[in-house]
Design a protein around this nucleic acid. Structure first.
Lengths: 402, 402
DNA sequence: CTACTTTGTGCGACGTCACAACAAACGGGG
DNA sequence: CCCCGTTTGTTGTGACGTCGCACAAAGTAG
């Protein structure tokens, strides 16, 4: 009962930025006294703090209140083919710590990868504590299919994993005081793109492309997980019946025509350096951008062709979901601007609703940190759900009633 | 604050059925005294009533409390190509009134259709009042694309309507004391399929097929509308690039291969009576069932072929949404059982998640009343959101404090 | 018939919120 | 320079809702 009101105030501060107690009261339909009391309580918990004066013309200026980051942090973690990574985000959304270790998951044993990630998480938690904060939770993004309980990785084709109870394994290694949960990596990336408070980012579709394709759906600001947690597996929607064979064994999957490989296949001969997996990915993508900027016909044609396929798939999803925006992430973020015309064209052509249902095409700016950022955001959600769960400020405990 | 608790109790009774005050308290984490007070208040509002004793073994038997339907009703209405219809549902979900009028929307003027529907709604409201109830709202389902404000029908291809502010028009005709809102017809059908309390029906995908195809998505028990309200337009997802031309002008739309016409095209010659639009639809569908039951090869092949296409589209949506069930409605409900093997096969083949993500294929049993039923359900939602909005029982007003 | 269990209600204590009053802080005008 | 209006933030007071507890009611088991 009390926690719901505190939650309301906290979310309002996150979504709408700092403001005075009086404005908070009018915005939430409370009295100034109630708002003041709630803010006071949040202040005691160390979740908000004063943020300078707010001159608003006439009358006494208010003292703005803002989220106080440094007390609590959420940790996001990621297990991917090439690396494991973590990130700690404070309540205000600022990065407090970040760790990253390259791996070769296909050669490393499962337990070794989990060991390494656990080490990174503990290091991150240590960083948080060193900054005087407490960790409220850790959400781990895994590249693969996670069962609804979010505890067991059913299949991780790219990782080469199968039936790994990632949640339990990690909890065993950490002995952490905070909850550890598991989520699909692309779903977490979607969470990261849905910035709180931005109304145009509460119904979005995130499409991630690289070796494979995945994605996530945010509807009404909340991640859509589906009945067993398998939602967002866009890469294996069959968009071209009778088309190319996919690594998954099916034929005509979206990722056979819109992931990185089909682009490279169309853009370059087998001996072209941009198709050399030994080279760094961003180098190869930069080269594609260079060629496109120079007007190379084959490159442009390839981008156009793949862009069309991206648009066709995006149109199908838009017909079903009518998102406010489609956020393209992964390799699309780097070279997608060259695909934009083709994507837009197919989207407008393939969506029944007038003007494509008003869906905008955007490109992610989060880079490879999207998943860990989304994980940390998701972990922090528990604080916004119930602010009373965080331990009170030590000085308040000592001070007592004065 | 108070209304939220009342809302909780009311929903609990709806979702879990009648039960004693004590069980209500334990289920909701309240004390027995609080539960008793809340039930008392709901009783005064006329929303719940006693429902016999509940023998539970040891101790004093409890007196069960159940939803009391007859006080408040929601009205669902529908504007379709061949008919307009209404239905009043009471709080318990029982049908209180039902009206239906066949029309030919292509020949009738827009205003005439609206006049007729308004008349039906008023008649339905009169029925509700005659039964001693009050109407709490009316939700109108329209076959076409509705803009997010849910006020203007942007395009209704089958109706032949364009840019009609259905909501405002209807309100003007009704001068109703209750709110009137507009929703896509197939979306309302989806609401009707998502039976409250049934956990396996809170994440579902409803696919409606007849002349065209549409549908709706229910995620976490709530209708997914999308940013502008255009969600659920499955019929025009392009499943066969370069395929057949669709009535909408595009090529390869799902409804060109999975709606009623492609089935008839494959199953019968042009002069076959089952392709005669003059015959009643259920007659023609019954004939298809007869032939399939008799083992007619051409019919079975057609059902198999169309079923495969249904499964291909369903698989795409299942990859994206991972619903607990796909509910097939419209003509699928009548003859879909003959398509089930083909649908299941494509669904298992086309969905990445193991065992097709656990998604079941089901057929609607609601017939053509799905949309009106969903509309009435949606209208009643306002009562569950805030039970205090309903007018108190007249006898309570008269009785006063005793 | 007694012991025990469970249900439903009545009553006092406590916490929370709304309303009102008041002090504080600032701009503007004479 | 001072007074006034305006807005902010805090402090009290009363109303209301919820919890905990006790008690009567109504059944079962032995």
């Amino acid at each position: 009962m009390r926690s719901t009101k505190l939650s309301l105030v906290l979310r309002q501060l996150r979504d709408g930025g700092p403001r005075s107690r009086a404005r908070l009261a009018t915005d939430l339909g409370l009295t100034r006294s109630s708002a003041s009391a709630l803010v006071g309580e949040l202040e005691e918990l160390g979740l908000v703090r004063a943020a300078g004066v707010e001159r608003g013309g006439l009358g006494r200026p208010g003292t703005a209140v803002e989220l106080d980051g440094h007390r609590v942090c959420g940790i996001g973690a990621e297990i991917n083919v090439n690396h494991v990574a973590t990130m700690a985000l404070d309540l205000a959304g600022d990065v407090v710590a970040e760790h990253r270790a390259p791996i070769d998951s296909t050669r490393l044993a499962v337990s070794a990868v989990l060991d390494l990630l656990a080490e990174l998480v503990e290091q991150t938690d240590a960083d948080v504590r060193a900054g005087g904060g407490q960790t409220v939770g850790c959400v781990v993004g895994v590249a693969g299919l996670l069962d609804r309980t979010h505890e067991v990785l059913t299949v991780g084709p790219n990782l080469g994993w199968k039936d790994v109870p990632v949640g339990a394994e990690l909890r065993g290694r950490l002995g952490a005081a905070y909850p550890v949960t598991i989520e699909n990596e692309a779903n977490l990336a979607a969470v990261a793109e849905a910035v709180p408070g931005d109304a145009s980012r509460q119904d979005i579709l995130v499409i991630f492309g690289e070796v494979g394709m995945g994605g996530g759906i945010v509807a009404g600001g909340r991640l859509l997980r589906g009945h067993q947690g398998y939602a967002g597996e866009f890469g294996h929607m069959i968009v071209e019946p009778g088309g190319r064979r996919c690594g998954c064994g099916r034929v005509g999957c979206w990722e056979t025509v819109a992931a990185l490989r089909p682009l490279l296949d169309a853009a370059a001969d087998p001996d072209d350096p941009i198709r050399d997996p030994a080279l760094a990915l961003d180098e190869r993508l930069a080269e594609i951008n260079r060629r496109a900027d120079l007007g190379d016909n084959r490159t442009l044609a390839a981008l156009d062709q793949v862009g069309s396929w991206v648009g066709i798939g995006a149109a199908m999803l838009t017909n079903a979901l009518n998102p406010a925006a489609i956020v393209l992430s992964g390799y699309f973020a780097e070279i997608g601007h060259h695909m934009r015309p083709a994507i837009q064209e197919q989207l407008l052509a393939g969506v029944l609703a007038p003007q494509g249902g008003g869906t905008r095409v955007e490109f992610s700016t989060l880079g490879f940190t999207a998943a860990v950022r989304g994980g940390a955001t998701e972990a922090l959600e528990s604080v916004f759900d119930d602010p009373t769960t965080v331990a009170p400020r030590p000085d308040v405990l000592l001070g007592g009633a004065r």
